[in-house]
């Protein structure tokens, strides 16, 4: 018995040498109801580098994929429930909760995730969802900002994402957002750190390939926030960016920094046309 298990482990360990690591062709339907577009034609601005954009979901194991197909299995949903409570919690000097102004999240936040990051006319800046949430907390509630990658922020982003699941990502990259988008694009192709790797080195030139034990995806963010089995919590976009830049032996940018905001807009635009999937499940 023991011996058998050991042989099985040995076989597993040996397998990756010859593993077939192509993204699969499975279909993601959440709760037997929301059919997700997880592969689609690349948006026009990407067509000189790739034909098809794909959700990170395709690069995960069948077991991990299954967790995302059913909200009762998806560990993120606990955090969505917690955020629903936060939504109704009065905080700050104005005596208001999110629901005081936005009422039912299912109505007011439908479609919002799909178009963020988004240009804000009043403040003349590109705002991520996290920036908008904190702007509401500070200015409209008189409450303290949440940490940019904090648990509360990730949970609230998850609650807001759920309202757009299945809708196509559609961030605007022209008009006033264009300069931030161009800055994000430049960051995407800059080879950082002592390993001199750019986002493109891994997620454009090598998606589908194994890098050690990791199956490289296109690094799309349509599934964020993401519950990772590895750290058993919800992970925000900027926390992921930070980890990826750190892994090039580079000095990272800070979550919420202008660089990461610009990068988020650019990376989001590479997924224009994919469904909003967040909160997703990854390893």
């Amino acid at each position: 018995m023991k011996f058998k298990a050991m042989t099985a482990i040995a076989a597993l360990v040996a397998a990756p040498l010859s593993a077939v690591a192509e993204p699969d062709d499975d279909t993601l339907i959440v709760n037997e109801e929301i059919e997700m577009v997880t592969k689609t034609d690349a948006p026009a601005h990407l067509q000189d580098v790739m034909d098809t954009v794909m959700s990170g979901w395709h690069f995960r194991s069948d077991e991990t994929q299954a967790l995302q197909a059913d909200d009762f299995e998806n560990p993120s949903m606990v955090f969505v429930d917690q955020a629903q409570e936060l939504w109704d919690t009065v905080e700050g000097t104005e005596g208001k909760s999110c629901s005081s102004c936005h009422e039912d999240v299912a109505d007011s936040m439908k479609g919002v995730r799909a178009v963020y990051p988004k240009w804000n006319d009043a403040t003349e800046e590109v705002r991520t969802l996290a920036m908008q949430i904190n702007a509401c907390r500070e200015n409209n509630m008189g409450a303290e900002k949440w940490g940019y990658t904090s648990g509360q922020m990730a949970s609230m982003e998850a609650l807001i994402s759920v309202q757009s699941r299945g809708m196509p990502v559609n961030v605007a990259i022209d008009g006033p957002a264009e300069s931030a988008w161009a800055m994000g694009k430049e960051i995407y192709y800059t080879r950082y750190g002592q390993l001199e790797l750019s986002c493109a080195s891994c997620h454009e030139l090598n998606y589908g390939n194994m890098i050690r034990a990791d199956h490289l995806s296109q690094g799309q963010i349509n599934g964020f926030p993401t519950y990772r089995l590895k750290n058993a919590k919800l992970n925000t976009v900027h926390a992921r960016f930070k980890g990826c830049v750190r892994d090039t032996r580079a000095e990272t940018f800070k979550p919420g920094s202008p660089e990461f905001v610009a990068l988020e807009l650019y990376v989001a635009s590479r997924g224009n046309g994919l469904s909003v999937e967040g909160p997703s499940v990854r390893n």
Partner: peptide, 9 residues
């Protein structure tokens, strides 16, 4: 470009 101290960030 932005060399880091190992993998510390």
């Amino acid at each position: 470009t932005r060399p880091g101290d190992g993998y510390t960030g």
